[in-house]
Every structure is written in C-alpha cells, then in structure tokens.
C-alpha cells in the first residue's frame, strides 16, 4: 500500500501544480515592466495604473457588477420559491415539467441557452418589449440560468431538513405563509446566501450568454476581456486578472474558514 499512496500523492501534487501554476504565472507577469511576456523587465505596477485609466474596462466592470447584483438577487428569490414549490407544496399538475425546467438550464450548453434567449428577445418587433437589447436582456438571461442553481442548492437544504418544526407550527395553527416566513426561510437562509454568491459569480463570469443577449447595447467585463485577449496576451488584462482572482481567493478563504469554525463550534453539521 505504501508504494501506491506515494503514487497517489505525487499525482495530487502534480494536479495542484497544474491547477495553480498558470494563475500564479499570470499574476507574476502582471507586475512585469516589459510588454512581452517572456522578458522580465523589472517589477512595475504600470499595468495597474494603465488599467485604472482605462474607461472602457472600468465602465464594463461597473455594468457587470450591477447586472450581477440585480440578477443574483432576483434569482435567489425565484430560485427559493422554486425550491419551495418543488419540495413543500405536495403534488400538482405540471410538477414534472417544472422539475425538468429547473434541471435543464444546468446542463444546457451555453451557446444554446444564449441562442434561444436571443431569438426570444429579438421578437420584440411583435410585442414592443423589451424596447432595446442590452443590460436588461442580459439581466433576464442571467436570472434564468442562475435561478436553477439557487433552486438546486436551496432544495437540497430543504430535502435534508427536519420537517418537524414546520409541522409543529402548522399543528399549532400557523398559516402556511407565516410558517414559511418565520420557520422555513430562516432555516434555509445559509443555502440562500450560498446560492446568491454562486449566482453573483456566475453572472460576473458569463461571456457566451451575455454576448448573445446584449446585441450592440452593452459590453460586460467578460465581453471586453474576451475581445482584448482574442488578439493575444494583454498586460492590462494580467493586472485585471490578478485583482479579480485576488478578491475571489480572499473571499473564498474567509468563507471556508468561517464554515470550518462553525463546524468546530457546532460539530453536528
């Protein structure tokens, strides 16, 4: 067994090097004074200053953040309702279709989701709505695919939860609305928070569906990044990547650390 575990841990080390080396190299080069990737021209923060002066990138970042906050919030509301509808509402007609519509966006290739939403919004001539394509249509598209992720996360929490509290409240005469609000929602709040964060990240990162649904109306941050790096390595994007990855890493580490602490305080979970 000794030899096989040596093999397993060698592959593990190789795997982590494979996962993290390119990102570390990218971060290192963001501080490179030279424009060419290979030549080390000394330490410099010039690409960061260039980034801060790049109005196109800053505008796109702001737009992406707005879309991400709005779409994550609406997706969390709709996704939580969907999870309740699948898990706490018993049987009703059309439930199978509902289950399918929740599951399908998770596995649907982005190009197909993007194409179908674009064809849909391009029927605006018939209905007069939406009046233009841009941030609003991107937001609708993001809500649609990320509410499915929220629904899955909240639903798995609902499924693993003890029903007895809710049943006790019902037996004591609590109305379903009040029971949901006072008992179910506080219990699924951590899952809703996780769902919001995931929806936020998915929205911030989405390129394909945004490109399909935005028309010429708006450019999100991934769309600007994509149009720049398609032509080759861009030092300003290295700086941007370092900032984004830095923020995300710190956020995930804090979240992971908090969760571990909670587990220690509360070993039942």
């Amino acid at each position: 067994m000794r030899r096989s575990s040596t093999f397993l841990y060698s592959v593990l080390c190789f795997g982590y090097a494979f996962l993290y080396l390119p990102i570390l190299v990218l971060m290192l080069y963001s501080f490179n004074n030279a424009r060419l990737a290979t030549v080390w021209g000394g330490f410099s923060t010039r690409w960061y200053s260039a980034l801060l002066e790049n109005a196109q990138i800053l505008d796109a970042a702001l737009l992406s953040l707005q879309i991400a906050v709005v779409s994550a919030t609406v997706a969390t509301l709709l996704g939580t309702l969907a999870a309740l509808g699948l898990n706490r509402m018993g049987r009703y007609r059309g439930r199978t279709l509902f289950t399918g519509m929740i599951a399908a966006p998770l596995v649907m290739p982005e190009v197909i989701t993007g194409l179908s939403l674009l064809l849909f919004v391009s029927l605006q001539e018939l209905t007069g709505w939406p009046s233009s394509r841009g941030a609003n249509t991107i937001t609708i598209a993001h809500i649609t695919f990320s509410m499915a992720y929220v629904a899955v996360i909240v639903q798995s929490r609902l499924a693993s939860m003890d029903h007895s509290l809710e049943e006790a409240a019902m037996d004591l005469g609590g109305r379903p609305f009040a029971v949901t609000l006072d008992i179910t929602l506080p219990l699924v709040a951590p899952a809703m928070a996780a769902g919001w964060l995931l929806a936020f990240t998915l929205s911030l990162d989405d390129l394909v569906i945004s490109s399909f649904t935005s028309g010429a109306g708006a450019s999100t941050l991934p769309m600007v990044i994509f149009s720049k790096v398609k032509l080759g390595v861009t030092p300003e994007i290295n700086a941007l990547a370092t900032i984004i990855i830095g923020i995300v890493t710190v956020g995930v580490l804090i979240a992971g650390w908090t969760m571990l602490r909670q587990q220690r305080v509360n070993p039942g979970h």
Binding site: P22, I23, L26, D205, L207, V248
Partner: peptide, 17 residues
C-alpha cells in the same frame, strides 16, 4: 477555489503559458 475564479481568465492564463 477554481470554481469561483473566472473561467475566462483561467483559460486566458494558458495563453500566457
């Protein structure tokens, strides 16, 4: 951790490599 970092930027990192 990579799930939460930008997919696009991680693909881009290989262009640098």
């Amino acid at each position: 951790l990579p799930f939460w970092t930008s997919f696009l930027l991680r693909v881009y990192a290989w262009m640098v490599m």
